[in-house]
């Protein structure tokens, strides 16, 4: 039987990789994908704890997380298309219109 702490370690590692991706990359696609990485890390944690607590609540919440991720991806990609059309760039450090 796999100990629960292994799942927690895996999900913490995946979450940290996602955080580093959000903080360090310039391309807005990679930043969005890093957010998906973090959501998936949370999903692994939810399913693992649901498995060991013998409760289905974790599974239900994973379904909701996937729903929100789908809606978020659709809206965010629409915003990226608008940004690329209006500003001609997908690099976040070139969007400095409001910088004083």
């Amino acid at each position: 039987m796999i100990p629960l702490s292994w799942y927690v370690m895996l999900s913490a590692g995946l979450f940290t990789i996602g955080v580093v991706g959000v903080l360090s990359r310039r391309n807005i696609f990679i930043i969005l994908m890093s957010i998906e990485l973090m959501l998936n890390a949370a999903n692994i944690n939810l399913v693992a704890f649901a498995h060991y607590l013998q409760s289905l609540t974790g599974h239900i919440f994973v379904i909701f997380v996937i729903t929100v991720a789908a809606a978020e991806a659709a809206v965010a990609l629409a915003i990226i298309i608008l940004l690329a059309r209006n500003r001609g760039s997908v690099y976040v450090d070139e969007f400095n219109l409001m910088k004083g």
């Binding site: 913490a12 940290t16 955080v19 903080l23 360090s24 990359r25 391309n27 990679i30 976040v92 450090d93």
Partner: peptide, 18 residues
Amino acid sequence: SRANRYWPWAAGFGLLVA
């Protein structure tokens, strides 16, 4: 370039947290 200029800080922070 693929990373912004703060990426060593972000990577170090990530390693620390992990």
